[in-house]
Amino acid sequence: MQRVSLVINGNKVSREIEDRTLLSSLLRDILSLTGTHVGCDTSQCGACVVLVDGKSVKSCTLFAADIDGSKIITIEGLANNGKLHPIQEALKKHHGLQCGFCTPGMVMSVVDLLKNKKNPSDQEIRDWLKGNICRCTGYQNIVAAVKEAASKM
């Protein structure tokens, strides 16, 4: 067992967990933050993406013990006082989601992209989202939403 202390969406959290606990299971199964999805569990789909110390990572491929002391942002930490984050707002407006399973990971990945690139081109957006698989939308509207969010941030 390991004691792991993290700051998740601004809240201090400390838990005694098994060494093999993945960050995705800590979030979902122990802390009930089920906004972070697990799609493939084989590091391919990106549904589980969260920010660890500002960088987007796949929470299904990361031991919680590995990131003791880190700051984590999940999809639950994005909206501010009920007001959606610009990328959430833009996805809603452009129908950038259908079933919504990929969306939390997609959103967290885009947050990381827009931190580093203020006005990404279509190609840059598509390249960045290679690790986020969506089985519904065909990506077109996701790219449109990212562009709009970029222009509003």
Partner: peptide
């Protein structure tokens, strides 16, 4: 290499 999240780890 891979995707952005793979490159971050």
């Amino acid at each position: 290499i891979g995707d952005a999240q793979v490159r971050n780890r």
